[in-house]
Amino acid sequence: MSTATPSAPSNKLGLTKQDYVGSKSTLCAGCGHDSITGQIINAAFEMSIEGHRVAKFSGIGCSSKTPAYFLNQGWGFNGVHGRMPALATGACLANRTLINIGVSGDGDSMSIGTGQFVHAIRRNIPMIYIIEDNGVYGLTKGQFSATADKGSHLKSGAVNELPPIDPCTLAIELGCGFVARSFSGNPKQLNAILKAAFAYEGTAVIDVISPCVTFNNHDASTRSYKHVKDHDFPLHDLGFIQYSEVEEVDIAAGQTEVVTFPDGSKVAIKAIHEGYDPRDRFTAVKAIHESMQKGEFLTGLLYINPENPPLPEVLNLVDEPLATLPQATVKPGPGVLADIMESLK
């Protein structure tokens, strides 16, 4: 299956990183989104994700093109603007064994698709929900999005006078059990967050600040690469430990906190930000607001509650995929119809 050289490292499935790539990106050279794509490939490879179980969803926009650029072994569905969550919802109900990755943008999720974002979280759809957040509509050539900071300038000189919507505090408010923010220029942190997100069973929201090198990378933009690099305040050093590796890893004591997932995987969190408890949504929201007031991007695993049951569990669905249940299971027999007809006489 592998097309790489024999020397390329392989994972537990015997696959190399080459088995996790997709088509060639058609985004602008230097686009932050391509870095995120690279980390999805790395994380899936390192987690030994079975490619055929992956379903990739997206809406419309630059970000929504990216599912074509990773995990060719998985099935992709590039839908309509702002409606990616509904597609993931339908697919996760049809086949609960799929591993769902949704890629959206700030335009896709915080304007036209805000309702779908909100309700996907409310239902706890089993999916990694990545927002590739550049504060701008790239594909239509540089209009403000709803995550643009107040006072930020467009290339044309136009100033954004409206306050931004923050996907992370919104997600925490809605009861999301996995809320993270990262920066496309911090691959190490993003990698750890993505791996933890693969282990999480419900909706894992990851807002990745990803500067648009073409339309929003000038000095007066708060989403330029330089500005974000200068204002990125990581919460903690994250280490993700997959279940089967637990025995081999020594978790440092002291300041390091460990959050365990239902499958046994663990995230080791070494706090940098004093007094921050990612399992307490109230202090999490407070810390995010405080950092926003200072103009900082607080990044890391902002909030985690691994016990949140995903929708197929709430609906008490059978364990096997509904899609392939045989006729004998889903079609009631003639006796059932006869009884119903009798009751209507």
Binding site: L87, A88, G90, A91, L93, A94, N95, Q116
Partner: peptide, 16 residues
């Protein structure tokens, strides 16, 4: 809108 999305993606994934 969301109902239609669920129907199509479920169908795509093989459900009736």
């Amino acid at each position: 809108l969301a109902s239609a999305g669920v129907v199509l993606a479920a169908g795509w994934a093989g459900a009736r």
